[in-house]
């Protein structure tokens, strides 16, 4: 599903990623861990082509995304779900509209939008709050809306950049359980985090980055 080959990313004179080689199979649940500045976010941005590698190849489903023409990038992203630490919800829109507005833009029919949004909200246990506005929800609930939006288009890969960074341990656990549930449906999940407790609790594959390099890659691993 994801293959990185000799990937380097350099910002001016600093390497954010240095000779990274990585393979993630379809359906895996992977934690990407490391301290701040280790290169986790950069690696994730390479996957959805928000950044380009300085050298090396980044393959997603066999396609070298670093060589993907600009006009094809949206097609790559439609097959991914991206979850952000700061949720990135539209405050003036309802939860339903927040989840719906991207698939509406993709030309999905109203009935199909309705089905998909309700089903996504059900997965994150927020079906009862679809008419609320984001500011009426707790941080955890807002992140669940972010997850619903990420899965509403039926992606095969879910990328979550520090999804529990702003949440308390209990809420973080709930979020991780939802992501685990989504993974059990066959969706590949890649989560960047530096939450030791969470990583140790789930015992999934753990890839550790340090100063832009992969220093450890362990199945059912721990962190810290």
């Amino acid at each position: 599903m994801i293959n990185l080959r000799g990937v380097n990313k350099k910002y001016r004179n600093t390497y954010a990623l240095k000779n990274v080689n990585l393979d993630i199979q379809k359906g895996e649940f992977v934690f990407l861990v490391g301290s701040s500045g280790a290169g986790k976010s950069t690696l994730m941005k390479l996957l959805y082509r928000e950044e380009l590698p300085t050298s090396g190849n980044v393959y997603v489903s066999g396609v070298d995304v670093s060589k993907l023409p600009d006009n094809k990038v949206p097609y790559l992203r439609r097959n991914m779900g991206i979850i952000f630490q700061d949720y990135k919800l539209l405050e003036k829109q309802t939860i339903y509209d927040n989840v719906a507005f991207v698939i509406r833009a993709l030309g999905v029919s109203s009935r199909e939008v309705d089905n998909r949004v309700k089903s996504a909200l059900k997965i994150v246990n927020l079906a009862h709050k679809m008419k609320s506005k984001p500011n009426e929800l707790s941080g955890g609930e807002q992140q669940r809306v972010g997850i619903a939006r990420a899965i509403v288009n039926g992606p095969s890969l879910l990328i979550a950049d520090e999804p529990t960074g702003n949440l308390d341990p209990q809420t973080s656990l709930e979020i991780m359980e939802i992501l685990d549930k989504i993974n059990s449906r066959g969706i590949t999940v890649l989560i960047s985090t530096h939450d030791h407790a969470m990583v140790n609790h789930f015992r999934k594959r753990v890839i550790t980055l340090e100063a832009g390099q992969v220093i450890k890659d362990v199945q059912a691993g721990t962190y810290g």
Binding site: P74, Y75, I82, L90, F101, V102, R149, N153
Partner: peptide, 12 residues
Amino acid sequence: KEIEIMRLMGVS
């Protein structure tokens, strides 16, 4: 924010 989300979610 709306534009950024649309862009990252694959809207052309």
